[in-house]
Amino acid sequence: MNRILYESRCRCNEEFSITKKRKSPTRSEGKPLQYPKSNEITSKTFQIKYEKKLSATAKFILNSFQNKYIYYAIDDILYLFNLKPSERNNLLAILYSPVLSLHNNFSVNFFDIWVSEIYIDEKTKINKFLNKSSGASDQTSYITVKLFYKTKVPVKKQESLW
């Protein structure tokens, strides 16, 4: 009797789902970006002379970019940290200038660049001829940025058929 009831019960409430496993494509699909293999990367070091005083927050932000993908570093400046607009623009300029140099000189794609190291060296120049009480001094920061970038063989353009 129980077997008959079991076979004749309504199956409309049961869920059937067929899942087909997709082939994994070459792009990451939301996964964190991976460092490229060591035979694919090249590094370039840039030294930037910054003639304004860097705030403690700006120094902290720049130091947090060690071993970070450039896109994430720029995203952090724009959205993560609550900065003054002038300071935000200055930090973006510090990162954009080496990236543009790589793009223009070596045809490196923006999405193939990682920040390897950032060093900040502050130099203070004191004017000896002014009063010591006035505190007239010029502070210059030298920011050294070492970037990794992925090198690719350029794609050969196909000739047209006509």
Rank of each mutant, 00 (worst) to 15 (best):
R11K: 10
R11C: 10
R11H: 04
R11L: 09
R11Q: 08
N13P: 08
N13K: 12
N13F: 08
E14R: 12
E15T: 13
E15K: 11
F16V: 12
F16T: 10
F16I: 12
S17Y: 01
K20Q: 11
K21N: 06
K21G: 04
K21T: 08
K21S: 08
K21Y: 03
R22T: 06
R22H: 06
K23M: 07
K23R: 12
T26L: 13
T26D: 14
R27K: 12
S28F: 05
S28E: 12
S28T: 09
E29I: 09
G30I: 02
P32A: 11
P32W: 02
L33A: 04
L33N: 04
L33P: 00
Q34Y: 03
K37W: 05
S38D: 10
S38E: 11
S38T: 06
N39Y: 04
N39K: 08
E40V: 05
E40G: 01
E40D: 14
I41G: 04
T42I: 04
S43C: 07
S43A: 06
S43V: 01
K44Y: 00
K44W: 00
T45D: 07
T45G: 04
T45L: 08
F46T: 01
Q47G: 03
I48E: 05
I48K: 03
I48V: 13
I48H: 02
Y50T: 03
Y50C: 05
L54T: 07
S55M: 09
A56Y: 10
T57Y: 05
T57E: 15
A58E: 05
A58R: 01
A58G: 10
K59W: 00
F60C: 07
F60W: 04
I61E: 00
I61N: 01
L62Y: 03
N63T: 06
S64C: 03
S64E: 00
F65N: 00
Q66P: 03
N67G: 04
N67R: 09
N67K: 14
N67S: 15
K68E: 14
K68S: 04
Y69D: 07
Y69Q: 12
I70K: 01
Y71A: 15
Y72M: 11
Y72A: 10
A73D: 02
I74T: 11
I74Y: 06
D75Y: 12
D76M: 02
D76S: 14
D76F: 01
L78T: 13
F81R: 08
N82E: 13
N82W: 03
L83R: 02
K84A: 12
K84G: 14
P85V: 14
S86M: 09
S86N: 15
E87Q: 08
E87Y: 01
R88W: 00
R88L: 04
R88Y: 01
N90H: 09
N90T: 02
L91N: 00
A93W: 02
A93Q: 10
A93G: 13
A93V: 01
I94S: 01
L95M: 12
L95D: 00
